[in-house]
Structures are given as structure tokens and as C-alpha cells.
Design a protein around this nucleic acid. Structure first.
Lengths: 199, 199
DNA sequence: GCGTTTACGTTGCAACTGCAATGCAAACGG
DNA sequence: CCGTTTGCATTGCAGTTGCAACGTAAACGC
């Protein structure tokens, strides 16, 4: 076994370059040579780690989802032992919003991938599962803490949609972060009843 | 003045072909030749009516927005003289959701354009205005009809976000139309208080 | 030493891209 | 009849694309 190299590290390096390109110029600018240049490597090397462009794309999409998941789990862990459902929900959803430049960059790529997968149903299956899992989690939190008598499932769908929609409008620059957060809190107020002043 | 041809009609014909291509294979598959083939014309003719590809894109984007606007005004007009705010709101938002195949096709293209404009801020200005106008309209309806004591502006932002998010998830096939409509109604319940059974 | 396997770099190619250029036919004003 | 303007088709070109095909260098087992 010759020349051992950390395979995953290289792939991550390339995927990182891909996302830089995608965030700045859109997914359609993501070509083998372009990504290779951004990563500072030869285009042959990119081909070595991803036999096809589509394979590279799929990997990058997985990276984004992992990053989001890591962000959320980290933010939740920072909440302490047994946070209130509403606080947990707010933290989680706010973390998924593109509120700073880092998350904006990720969000731009994610949005591009969203449009990408809509036309390629095969790739979209993974997103399906993620949504379903998130949905169940949110529904549980709502039913365990909401004051009003709403169907938790439906409310969860709505809440997730609010988050997604706010993300879209944030990326489009339609309004500033504070407005999005205010809208999110208003939404939570509707579900849980008005709350003591949130941070 | 020789050979008079309806300029707008031709452009509409081409834009229509563009959207068929975009809906089926994504925006990145939209090339001069491809669109020309889909429209059944020569690529030279496409060039005659749109001097650059970007000009063609911008026009297609405008067409989509006009179609949406027409859909909404038509649906609202069908409501009669003085509809209740809630009913008006529901009709409007439901009309903007990709609930049938026609609107799904439009939605796919719109989503692709969304990702497209995020990287090209110059094109996004028009969307800005549209959102702002919609927002003001919705806020007015809420403040004139909502039962709870919420800030109409914030609630409008949330409601619009719900609609956008539901649209995204519908396009992704994450859940069926009924689920989206149910979530929308739940959202309206939260704002206006539970209502008599909706159609 | 040698053979094999991995890790690249380089080159080449057919396909495609946007776009300019050119040509021609038709319709109108004069 | 003729020039001009418009509508459209064809062709060509430089650039880019994904990908295959090579090459070579390094690390290891034997």
C-alpha cells in the first residue's frame, strides 16, 4: 500500500473550495478546473478524488448538511441540561438561519443545491429524511410545551416553513437579521403564548 | 417599416420555451441553442429578440412574476365584492403555493431564479419591491382582522415566510399539498383565532 | 532489485457554450 | 423600381466544459 494520504481530508479540502466558488459565483460556475484552481491543486487531482462532477456535488451537499447538524447540536449543547422547549426551539431555528456571513455563504450554496436537487430527484432523498426527522423533533417540542390547542404536527410544519422562508428572504437581502428574528419570536409567541423578554 | 411582427408575442414564445427547459432540466441547461430547439426556432432568431443570454433570463423572470400576479388578482377577483380579510389572505397565499403541476413548473423555475439572483444582486432589486408591497398588503389585512394582539408587521413577515417555506418543501416533494394547506390554515388560525370549517 | 498499487500531473478531445458576423428575403417608403 | 429597414437563418470562432488517457513518482511487499 503506497503513498498513504488521508482521503477524507483531501475530499474535504476540495469540497471546501467548491463551496467557496459556489457561494461567490453560483453553482453553475462550479467546474472541475474552477474548483481545482480555487483549491490550489491540479484538475487531475480533483478527478482522482471524484470520478465525476456529480459525485463531487453530492459530496458537497452532504458536507453542508453535516455542517448544519453540527451547528445545531453545538448550539443546543450550550443551552445546558434541560432547557425549556421554547428556548430549545428558538435556539435551534435561529441557528439554522443565515444570520452571519458564514451562514450566509453556506445558505447561498444550500439554496443553489435546493434548486439543483429539485430537477434531480435522485439526490433529493437525503433531504427528505432530514426534513422528516426535524419535523418529528419539532412536533415533540411543541406538544410538550405549547399553550394553545394546536395540532403539533401541523404547527411543526408551519414553524419549519417559517424558518425556511425567513432564510430565503434573508439570503435575498429582503430584510435584516433583526426582522427575521423578530418574526421568529412572534411565531413562537403565537404557539407558546407571549413570553418574558427574549435575549 | 418592413415585415411587421408582434415583438412581444415572439419574446413570450421564446420565454415559454425557456421555462419549459428550465422546469425540466434546471436553469443551467438554459442555453441559446437549447431554448431555440425547445421553441422550434433557429438559435439566430432567439438572438434576434434577446441580444444576450442575460437579457433573456431577465425577461423570463419578469414573465414569471407577472404570471403570479395575474394568478393572484384573478383568484381574488373570484372572491366577490368584500371578502373577509382572512379569506382573502388564504386565497392569495394558497394561490402562490405550487399546488398543481402548472404552478409546480413555475415554482421550479422561480426557485432556480432565486438561487440565480442571490449571486447577481443587480437582478434582485425587482424581487425586493415585490416582497415589500406584498408585506404591506398582508400587514394591512392582519391588522384589520386579526383577533390576537400581535404586531401586524411581524406577523406579516412570518406569514409570508410560511408561504415561501411551504412552497420550497412542496417543490422538494417533502409533503403533499394537503399538508401544506393544513399548515397554512393552522397558521391563519393562530393569527385570527380558530375559524368555521374552511372549504 | 522488482512488481504492484496509489497519488497525482499533463495532455487531448469531442461537445458545448455565448456571441459576432454575414447573408438573404420580405415588406415598406420614396 | 429602388433603397432601406426589419426578420430571420447560417456559419464561424474563441473559450469552456467533463472526462478519458496517458504519464510519472513515490511507497510498500517480496
Amino acid at each position: 500500500m503506497p503513498k498513504r494520504v488521508d482521503h477524507r481530508e483531501r475530499r474535504a479540502l476540495i469540497a471546501d473550495a467548491l463551496m467557496r466558488v459556489a457561494a461567490e459565483q453560483g453553482l453553475e460556475a462550479v467546474s472541475l478546473r474552477h474548483v481545482a484552481a480555487a483549491a490550489g491543486v491540479s484538475s487531475g487531482m480533483v478527478q482522482h478524488y471524484f470520478r465525476t462532477r456529480d459525485e463531487m456535488m453530492t459530496f458537497a451537499l452532504a458536507v453542508i448538511r453535516e455542517r448544519n447538524e453540527a451547528r445545531v447540536t453545538r448550539a443546543i449543547a450550550a443551552l445546558g441540561e434541560t432547557p425549556a422547549p421554547r428556548e430549545l426551539l428558538r435556539t435551534m431555528l435561529a441557528e439554522l438561519l443565515p444570520l452571519d456571513e458564514e451562514r450566509r455563504a453556506d445558505g447561498r450554496v444550500a439554496l443553489a443545491f435546493l434548486a439543483y436537487t429539485v430537477v434531480r430527484p435522485a439526490v433529493a432523498a437525503a433531504l427528505h429524511d432530514e426534513t422528516a426527522a426535524l419535523l418529528g423533533f419539532i412536533a415533540g417540542l411543541i406538544s410538550s410545551g405549547a399553550g394553545t390547542t394546536v395540532d403539533p404536527e401541523r404547527a411543526a410544519v408551519g414553524l419549519l416553513a417559517v424558518m425556511e422562508g425567513l432564510g430565503i428572504y434573508l439570503l435575498g437581502g429582503h430584510y435584516p437579521p433583526e426582522t427575521a428574528l423578530a418574526a421568529l419570536d412572534t411565531q413562537l409567541d403565537l404557539l407558546f403564548g407571549p413570553a418574558e423578554p427574549t435575549s
